[in-house]
Nucleic acid binder design. Structure first.
Length: 489
RNA sequence: GGUCGGUUGACCGAGUGGCUAGGUAGCGGUCUGCAAAACCGUGUACGGCGGUUCGAAUCCGCCACCGACCUCCA
């Protein structure tokens, strides 16, 4: 299992060589969505980032178990919600069962992921299906002495944990600073310290989503589900944990604390965090009211959108930036991405027209090595794309005859595009079905030959009319030295 | 206020102590009857001020601006 993959580990703040704990097996856990609302552009970022990682690890022949959870127990929306459960609140508004809301948005998330060509994870566990495991984990933490029960709720004892371990190591936070930064003293009566967090919360009588436990009828703390489910499916120590940078603190910090307190071991070996998508320089988030859903992007139905953008345009747009950089949304950037994507796929589509030469002016193996180098360098997809555009140039030049490829290099080029464009970047052609394609092709042949006749007779009025009329219905003609190509706009 | 990150040409976006990605748009050219596509060429780029260095946009310091996170409840 040779690899040369380096990934940036948020824990050490350095690029580190990736080596799984038990090769060839590799465990990958990524924080999935809370399904209380439509999937938005921000959700696409981690999904695509870790899809690329999943695809690459598979390509390197690791046996990857990719776990991406669904949070369906519900979180608070924002301060204005006064503690009411997010999913519960939405349910009241729409007069639906909480699980009906969950189902609806989970289905739509799955459909959007399919549209973006994001592969399904190996396991997609739901928090509501792992209440028992979460309760067991709480008991373990209590047994080890790092949690305490107050009035039916259980809290994590951060101060005690920090005496033996290091709370804040992932996010670079110092406990003393956190203490000094306490916002207010209200609502903290039950906890020993303001920075303690809930493992189990006693539910108010009107709370719908609640489960029985030895402490109270209530619900698990938010951070718990990821600790419990990652441990169940990947073990007490596993290889890679991913998620958005906004989850680094407190969510991931608390995950580390919970798992370490329970098992006495550092749970995650490599932490990876994707950066945010911004809109006009501000983070896109539901709570900020500036988010664009994927449906709106695909249909163009949002005041900020000048046109619809296809799923593959969005995917390409996201892959054109490195996952640890913010990427700012704008119509100009999306339009540029759309053109670039089409250029790439168009070249890929004509690769079979290249005829092998006796000799080669290009060495594809060098290009291939550069492509691997790009991915090995912390999944540098923008650099990979720049190399693939060198491939685009080679394809077009080979068709024009200004570059030559022998059979070995031609096959290598085809393989390069199949591996990197299709398999790893997960880009696919979006041209619609082929039902009427043959008929259309036959008709086009006839029209093209008629135009050729006119041109042979120097009847350019007729030939231009044919071309213009075709243009009008979205078909453009391209005269080449050795024939005529056509394509739908 | 604390912690962390960013500031690259018209736009997006990589990257490196000297060889200065890529996409989009613009301009010029080749090819075309014309056009399109493709190919070739092209640009006033690295926030400001100092410092280290033979040499910095890349390292260090200061400043400015922008952003993310900052425990309760979830």
């Amino acid at each position: 299992m040779q690899n040369n993959l380096y990934i940036f580990n948020s824990l050490s703040r350095k690029k580190e060589k990736f080596t799984p704990l038990h090769p060839p097996f590799t465990g990958l856990y990524v924080c999935g969505p809370t399904v209380y609302s439509d999937t938005h552009l921000g959700h696409a970022r981690p999904a695509i980032t870790f899809d690329l990682l999943f695809r690459y690890l598979n390509h390197l022949e690791y046996k990857v178990r990719y776990v991406r959870n669904i949070t369906d127990v519900g979180h608070l929306e924002n301060d204005a919600d006064e503690g009411e459960d997010k999913i519960l609140k939405k349910a009241r508004l729409e007069h639906l069962e909480p699980m009906e809301v969950v189902q609806k948005y989970m289905d739509s998330y799955h459909y959007n992921m399919y549209q973006l060509n994001v592969l399904n994870p190996s396991i997609e566990p739901r928090a509501s299906g792992h209440i028992i495991e979460q309760q067991e984990l709480i008991r373990e933490i209590i047994d080890k002495g790092y949690a305490y029960e107050v009035n039916g709720s259980v809290y994590f004892d951060v101060l005690k944990y920090n005496k033996k371990y290091n709370y804040g190591k992932l996010s670079g936070r110092i406990l003393d600073d956190l203490q000094g930064n306490t916002r207010s003293l209200e609502g903290q009566d039950e906890k020993k310290n303001s920075f303690d967090f809930a493992l189990w919360k006693k539910a108010a009588p009107e709370h719908i989503m609640k489960w029985p436990s030895q402490w109270s009828t209530g619900f698990p703390g938010w951070h718990l589900e990821c600790s419990a489910m990652s441990c169940k499916y990947l073990g007490e120590v596993f290889d890679i944990h991913g998620g958005g940078m906004d989850l680094q603190f407190p969510h991931h910090e608390c995950e580390i604390a919970q798992s370490t307190a329970a098992h006495g071991k550092e749970p995650v070996r490599y932490w990876m965090h994707n950066n945010m998508i911004t809109i006009n320089g501000q983070k896109m988030a539901r709570s900020l009211g500036n988010f664009i859903t994927l449906q709106e992007l695909f249909s163009g139905s949002h005041p900020l959108l000048k046109q619809p953008y296809s799923p593959m345009t969005i995917r390409f747009f996201i892959l054109q930036a490195h996952y640890r950089s913010t990427v700012d949304f704008s119509n100009e950037a999306l339009q540029a991405a759309e053109k670039g994507f089409q250029k790439l796929m168009k070249a890929y589509g004509v690769i079979d027209r290249i005829k092998a030469s006796q000799s080669s002016t290009i060495d594809i193996s060098a290009l291939r090595a550069k492509c691997y180098e790009a991915l090995d360098d912390d999944l540098n997809s923008p650099v990979l794309l720049s190399h693939l555009f060198e491939g685009v140039r080679i394809i077009n030049s080979a068709i024009d005859g200004t570059e030559k490829l022998d059979e070995v290099n031609l096959n290598a080029l085809k393989d390069l595009f199949r591996v990197f464009v299709t398999d790893l970047l997960g880009l696919r052609n979006e041209d619609e079905g082929k039902e009427d394609e043959k008929l259309t092709g036959d008709l086009m042949e006839i029209i093209i030959s008629l135009r050729k006749d006119a041109r042979d007779k120097k009847d350019f009025a007729t030939s231009d009319k044919i071309r213009n009329e075709l243009n009008r219905i979205g078909i453009s003609l391209k005269d080449r030295k050795d024939g005529v190509d056509w394509e739908k706009a």
